[in-house]
Computed example of a mutant assay.
Amino acid sequence: MSTSVSNPADPHSVGNKSQGNPSQITGTQGQRPANRGKAADNRKARLWVTLAATVLFVIVGFLVIRTQGYVSGSEFSPSHFQKRDFSFYEIPLIHLQITPIKRSGTTPETAVYLRQTGLIPAATGNPDVWHLVTIQRGLTGRTPADAQLLTDQLELNTGSNPYWKQWCTDHPKLARELWPTIQKLADRELYILMPRMLEIAQNQPSIEALQTEIDKYLKREYAGLIADLKETGRNDLAEALRQEASRDYPGDPAF
């Protein structure tokens, strides 16, 4: 019995084992450059998609902030009788301010006149308190606040003349009684009481009559506001208003 063993030194034997199938080796080597090329193309495609999405996001974000993030309005200082406009940009919905506030003075001529003639107490320094007059966000309409009830009157003109400036010139004694009371109400943010106050002032023949009507009106309105605040559970505000009314009318049983 004989066994055939391959000779390790036989070049034909070694060659057959190491070379294998020439066609399979050639195919594997040819696929690698092609795969690398496809991977590079995929990376480029992802890069361009990311870049395009970023540019689109920036453009859309800019347009949204430019149209919906623009905030403008005006405010009024009761201590100085000054008015100013303001504007800035914010991120919509979350109302995060992203630009500095720009301000410009727009004080009406009548307000300047009241300060210059001493019809309201002169305040020194810069105003610390500002009350909102109007505000507008984006494309929404301008929203008025309570202080507009006063600024509209200060800006009221008859022809080319400021109405209340002319009224003060014509009724200096009544003006000295009216405007300090108006300023006191502005300090307390009681602008809602002013239209009627100004109407009363125009229909009084003397300073005594004006004082009587103003006191009657304010006592009634203070009592009503205090009762309304208590009914809605805002007892702190009701007490603060009661104390202010008590200072104006000490000893009055209503306060």
Rank of each mutant, 00 (worst) to 15 (best):
M1W: 13
S2F: 13
V5A: 14
S6D: 14
P8E: 12
P8N: 11
S13F: 14
V14A: 14
K17T: 08
S23Q: 15
Q24Y: 13
Q31R: 14
R32K: 14
R32A: 13
R32E: 15
N35W: 12
R36L: 13
D41P: 07
D41C: 11
N42M: 13
A45L: 09
A53Y: 06
T54I: 12
T54L: 14
V58F: 10
G61W: 07
I65W: 04
V71N: 13
E75A: 08
F76D: 02
F76L: 03
F86K: 06
E90I: 06
I91S: 03
P92N: 05
P100C: 00
P100M: 02
S104V: 08
S104C: 01
G105I: 08
T110W: 00
T117F: 02
G118N: 08
T124N: 04
P127Y: 00
I135K: 13
R137K: 11
R137A: 03
T140Q: 09
R142Y: 03
R142M: 12
T143F: 04
A145H: 05
Q153F: 07
L156V: 03
L156C: 05
L156T: 07
T158I: 11
W164M: 07
W164R: 02
W164S: 04
K165Y: 02
K165L: 10
C168Q: 02
H171C: 00
K173S: 12
R176M: 06
R176A: 07
E177P: 04
W179K: 00
P180K: 04
T181D: 01
D187W: 09
R188V: 05
L190Y: 02
Y191L: 02
I192C: 10
M194H: 05
P195A: 10
A201W: 00
Q202D: 08
Q204D: 10
I207R: 15
E208W: 11
E213W: 04
R220W: 12
L229I: 03
T232E: 15
A238G: 13
E244L: 04
R247P: 01
Y249K: 06
A254H: 08
A254I: 09
F255Y: 04
F255V: 06
